[in-house]
Amino acid sequence: MRNRPDSVMLFAAGFGTRMGALTRDRPKPLIEVAGRALLDHALDMVREAGVPRAVANAHYLADQIDAHLRGTGVAVSHESPDILETGGGLRHALGLLGDGPVFTMNTDAVWRGPNPLSLLAEAWDPERMDALLVTIPAENAVGHNGKGDFLMDDSGRLTRGPGNIYGGAQIIKTDLLHDVRETAFSLNLLWDRMLESGRLCGIRYPGQWCDVGRPEGIALAKAMIGGDHV
């Protein structure tokens, strides 16, 4: 039983403070890489993977996200007056996303290789997983200098530790969201519970990935998708 999700949450509400002056007058998801907004790079993968329903959350300069998505069929979940973080934002959008597990995807990364959402759908097994994360081996992460987020055993189960980097794409069951008292909270709270039960799993991405969280990531991502990094 695969129980493939039919909706995706695109995280687009953040302030993008690491981008400095670039996000003074526009939200980070609308920064361009190779002539296209980061949000559009993410939407390309949503459409290519055949996910029928997409929702983007919005808080910082939300009117620009609204305008950019007008006429695309993507619903917008507004977070006001306060930003809700990933967990609170996902819970707030459930009325638009529908029941059951969902894809979630950050909008500040660029991928080169197989569609990560398609890989997730193929590997998803709800009988033994509460979430399935795309992780990036360090050698496939362009411009990333961190030590990594997760270790993975031979069955795909994750534990925290230096190793693979979380790529910002996953399938996650949403039931546990309702057990959190806080209004604004990170999905790390749910992951910690899943780690305790051995139901947080991952797959390794075989292509390349670039985090566009800082200004220098723009040129690196452009070079990567242009073929300058092999």
Rank of each mutant, 00 (worst) to 15 (best):
A75E: 13
D108E: 11
V134L: 11
D228T: 05
E127K: 13
A184M: 09
Q170A: 15
L195C: 03
E79I: 05
G202T: 09
E196W: 03
N106Q: 14
L132G: 10
S77I: 03
D82V: 09
A67Y: 00
L90T: 14
L195K: 01
T107W: 05
H229T: 08
S155G: 08
L200I: 07
T86R: 10
D108V: 08
M129L: 02
G95T: 07
G89K: 07
I83Y: 12
M19C: 09
L187R: 08
P162A: 14
S77T: 01
P137W: 09
L187A: 04
L69Q: 07
A56D: 05
R47K: 12
L158K: 10
R24Y: 06
S77Y: 00
L10C: 11
G168P: 03
D192W: 06
L200R: 07
A54S: 13
I225K: 01
S77H: 05
L39W: 07
P162R: 12
R18I: 00
I171Q: 04
G20N: 06
G143H: 10
L94A: 02
P101N: 05
E79T: 05
L61W: 01
P5W: 09
L22V: 10
R160M: 13
V74W: 00
G143I: 01
V76R: 05
P5N: 08
D108H: 12
W191Q: 13
S77E: 03
A141W: 02
L22W: 06
D153M: 11
D82P: 00
A21Y: 05
I171M: 03
D66W: 10
K147Y: 08
Y166D: 13
L30M: 06
L200K: 06
R193E: 14
A54R: 09
M45C: 03
T17C: 04
R4V: 15
W191D: 12
D6H: 13
A56I: 11
L176V: 06
V230E: 13
H144K: 09
A13M: 06
S186V: 02
G146A: 14
D40W: 04
R47L: 11
I172G: 00
A219T: 14
P116D: 11
P5G: 11
T174F: 00
A37W: 02
I171A: 09
W124M: 11
L177Q: 01
G20S: 10
D66C: 08
A138N: 06
V134N: 10
I218C: 07
L22C: 01
L177A: 03
E122A: 15
H68E: 04
S77M: 05
L187G: 13
L96S: 09
A54Q: 10
R18F: 08
A54E: 10
K147L: 14
P137S: 11
L38R: 04
L39R: 10
I225E: 02
E48G: 03
R160E: 14
A54N: 08
H178Y: 14
T104S: 15
Y205F: 13
I172P: 00
I65W: 02
V142I: 15
